[in-house]
Design a protein around this nucleic acid. Structure first.
Ligand SMILES: O=c1ccn([C@H]2C[C@H](O)[C@@H](COP(=O)(O)OP(=O)(O)OP(=O)(O)O)O2)c(=O)[nH]1
Ligand SMILES: [Mg+2]
Length: 560
DNA sequence: AACCAGCATGT
DNA sequence: ACATGC
DNA sequence: GGTT
C-alpha cells in the first residue's frame, strides 16, 4: 500500500498524491473522543519531530501498521505514503531483506541518507517516548546491500521467498494440499454464465458451483429463490465458519475493513454452500474464496485449528480491542486509540478514558446489550411500540423488520418501521411516539435521535419491557413516507449482506438502490455518482425485485 | 489498481 | 471530515 | 480478503 514506487531518481509527482498525503495527515490529527490529560502531555513530547518516515507494509500486520502511522503523526513525525527524496527513515518488518526491499521500492541501488530500520526500533521509541538509537536495528551495511541487489538483477527471475527463517506457512500447506485431490475437477468451475442474474457475487456462484452431478439448473440457479430458507440442524462447515468469523471480527476491529469484508463474503459463500467442504478444490471453487482463504479453510478442515487465528487472538491487542468494540458506539478506531493509551479493562475505561454520551450508555449496559433476545421477547417489544403508535393515530402501521421479519429465533435488537397509508400522517410521529414511549419508562436511554425531531428519520435507543427480570434491549425505529414503504421495507428487513448484494446488482444495471428509492439512469464516474438518476415507482417489495430482474424472495430467504 | 452500498446521526 | 451504526 |  504505502510502497511500490518510483526509483529514487524520480522527483515526486505533483497533484493527486500530494493532496492525498496532506489529507491523510489532517485526518489522523483529528483523534476522536478527545484525549485525556495524560495523552495531551504526551503530545508535547514530539520526539519524532522532523522525521519523514515511510513504513513498508510487507510483513507488518495491518494492526501494528496503523498504530505506527497514528503514533508517528502524534509524536511530530511525518508519515509518508510513498518514498520520496525527503524520506529519512524506512521502517521494515524484522524479516525484511534488502533485495526484497529493493524490489518493492523498485530501487536499482540504495539511496544514501536514508535509514532502513526494523520495526522494533519504532516500537521501542513509542514505548519509551524517546528517540532511541537505531544502531541496533538498522539493516546490514551498504556494500553488502549493493551486492545483493546486483545479484538479484543478474538473476533476473528472482522469486526469492522472503521467509528464510522460521516456519513458512506456505510450505507447511502445500504438501497437505496434495493429499486432497480425490476429485477430478473436470467440470468443476463455472459451467454457467450467470452474467445477467449476477445478483449476489458470492451466492450466485456458490450454488452453480456445487452441483457436480446436479443437472438441474432450474430456478436454483439464482440463489435468490432458495438460499437461506432451510434451517438446518447440522450446519456444514460449522467450525470453518466459526474460525473465519473470528478472523473477520479481528480484522474489523483492527480497522482493516476490506479484509474483514473479504472474510465475510467467503463466510456467506460457505453458508450458502450447504454441503461439507472436504477439499481445497471445493473451497477455492467458491466465488469469494481465493487461494489464501482456501489454504486457511483447508488447514481448519485438517487440523481443526487456524494458527493465524490463534496467533492473533492470543494477543493483548486483539483481546482488548475486541472487548472495547463490543461497547455500543465504540468502533475500531476508538478501541485501538484506547488501547494505545494504555487502557486494558472496562473498569479502567470508565474512570480514565474519554467516552462520549453514547459510549457511556453502551458501557453501562454492556452485558445486556451484548446478548440477543428471544424471538418472543422481540414480538412483545414490537407490540408495545405498535400499541403506543396506534394510540397516537390508529391508522399508523408499525411492524418489526430486521432479523425478526426474517423469522430468526433470536434477535439482536428490534427494528420497527412506522408509516401511514395516507402518505402524510407519518409526519411529526417521532415527537409523539418517542414521548409516549418515554413517558411510561419503556425507553430507558436514547442513543441516536434528534432534539427537535424536525428532520428525524431514525431513532436508536434502549428499551426495557415492564416485566419481572426483563433486560435492556436495543430498539431501532424508522418512520417513512408511504411512497417509500417498499424500499424502506427492503432495507430494514435486510439482511445487510442481502441489501449490499441487491445494491451491487442495481449498480451493475445502471441503477441505485437505497432505503428511499430505486433510481434508474444513474451515471457514475470514477466510482462517484454524477447523476442521481430518477426514482422508479415501487409500490411493493415485489416491484423492486422485478425492476432488479430477480425473483421475489420472502424475508426468510433473505437471511444471508 | 480499482472496487467492494448507501445512508443518518454525533462530534 | 471522520466515526459509528443501521 | 477476493474479483475484475
Ligand atoms: O450495515 C447495515 C446494517 C443493517 N442494514 C439493514 C439490514 C438489517 O436487517 C436492518 C436492521 O439492522 P440490524 O443491525 O438490526 O440487523 P438485523 O438483521 O436485524 O440483525 P440483528 O438480529 O443482529 O438485529 O438494517 C443495512 O442495510 N446495512
Ligand atoms: Mg435487528
Amino acid at each position: 500500500m504505502a510502497s511500490r514506487n518510483m526509483p529514487s531518481t524520480n522527483k515526486r509527482k505533483r497533484g493527486k498524491n500530494e493532496d492525498l498525503d496532506a489529507e491523510k495527515c489532517k485526518k489522523s490529527k483529528l483523534e476522536p473522543g478527545g484525549n485525556s490529560a495524560k495523552s495531551t502531555a504526551e503530545n508535547n513530547n514530539r520526539f519524532l519531530n522532523g522525521l519523514h518516515i515511510l513504513i513498508i507494509s510487507a510483513g507488518i500486520q495491518k494492526f501494528r501498521f496503523d498504530i505506527f502511522k497514528k503514533q508517528i503523526i502524534k509524536y511530530g513525525g511525518i508519515y509518508m505514503e510513498k518514498f520520496t527524496d525527503e524520506t529519512s527513515h524506512i521502517i521494515v518488518d524484522e524479516k525484511m531483506e534488502l533485495d526484497r526491499l529493493c524490489r518493492i521500492l523498485k530501487w536499482d541501488s540504495i539511496p544514501t541518507g536514508v535509514k532502513i530500520i526494523k520495526s522494533l526500533w519504532l516500537s521501542g521509541c513509542l514505548k519509551d517516548n524517546n528517540l532511541n538509537s537505531s544502531a541496533n536495528f538498522e539493516l546490514d551495511n551498504q556494500e553488502f546491500r549493493v551486492q545483493s541487489v546486483k545479484n538479484d538483477l543478474l538473476n533476473d527471475n528472482v522469486k526469492v521467498e522472503p521467509s528464510t527463517s522460521n516456519y513458512s506457512p506456505k510450505n507447511e500447506h502445500s504438501p497437505t494440499k496434495d493429499h486432497s485431490p480425490k476429485k477430478d475437477h473436470s467440470s468443476k468451475k463455472a459451467a454457467y454464465s450467470d452474467a445477467d442474474s449476477d445478483y449476489d457475487e458470492a451466492n450466485d456462484r456458490a450454488l452453480p458451483a456445487s452441483p457436480k452431478g446436479h443437472k438441474h439448473i432450474p430456478t436454483e440457479k439464482w440463489v435468490c429463490s432458495a438460499a437461506s430458507s432451510d434451517k438446518k440442524k447440522e450446519i456444514p462447515n460449522k467450525n470453518v465458519i466459526a474460525k473465519l468469523e473470528e478472523m473477520a471480527k479481528n480484522y474489523k476491529n483492527s480497522a482493516d475493513k476490506w479484509r474483514s469484508f473479504g472474510y465475510q463474503k467467503a463466510i456467506a459463500a460457505l453458508k450458502t454452500y450447504n454441503k461439507e467442504i472436504t477439499t481445497y478444490e471445493d473451497a477455492v471453487a467458491l466465488r469469494g474464496v481465493g487461494k489464501k482463504l482456501a489454504d486457511k479453510i483447508w488447514e481448519i478442515i485438517q487440523t481443526g485449528e487456524l494458527r493465524k487465528l490463534n496467533e492473533i487472538s492470543s494477543t493483548d491487542e486483539a483481546k482488548t480491542t475486541n472487548m472495547f468494540s463490543d461497547i455500543w458506539g465504540v468502533g475500531a478506531t476508538t478501541a485501538r486509540l484506547w488501547y494505545t493509551q494504555g487502557h486494558r479493562t472496562l473498569a479502567n475505561l470508565e474512570k480514565n478514558a474519554n467516552l462520549n454520551r453514547q459510549q457511556k450508555v453502551g458501557l453501562r449496559l454492556y452485558d445486556d446489550l451484548k446478548e440477543r433476545m428471544t424471538r418472543e421477547e422481540a414480538g412483545k417489544i414490537e407490540q408495545y411500540v405498535k400499541e403506543t403508535a396506534q394510540k397516537i393515530n390508529p391508522g399508523l402501521i408499525a411492524m418489526a423488520c430486521g432479523s425478526y421479519r426474517r423469522g430468526k429465533q433470536t434477535c439482536g435488537d428490534v427494528d420497527v418501521l412506522v408509516t401511514h397509508p395516507d402518505g402524510k400522517s407519518h409526519k411529526g410521529v417521532f415527537q409523539k411516539l418517542l414521548h409516549g414511549l418515554h413517558e411510561t419508562g419503556f425507553l430507558t436511554d436514547d442513543l441516536v435521535t434528534q432534539d427537535d425531531h424536525s428532520t428525524q428519520q431514525k431513532y436508536l435507543g434502549v428499551c426495557k419491557l415492564p416485566e419481572e427480570g426483563s433486560q435492556h434491549r436495543r430498539l431501532d425505529i424508522i418512520v417513512v413516507p408511504h411512497n417509500e414503504l417498499a424500499c424502506a421495507l427492503m432495507y430494514f428487513t435486510g439482511s445487510a449482506h442481502f441489501n449490499r448484494s441487491c445494491r451491487n446488482l442495481a449498480i451493475a444495471k445502471g441503477m441505485s438502490l437505497s432505503e428511499h428509492s430505486l433510481n434508474t439512469g444513474v451515471i457514475r464516474s470514477h466510482g462517484e455518482k454524477i447523476n442521481k438518476g430518477t426514482p422508479l415507482p415501487t409500490p411493493t417489495e415485489e416491484s423492486v425485485f422485478e425492476l432488479l430482474g430477480i425473483p421475489y424472495r420472502s424475508p426468510q430467504e433473505r437471511d444471508h
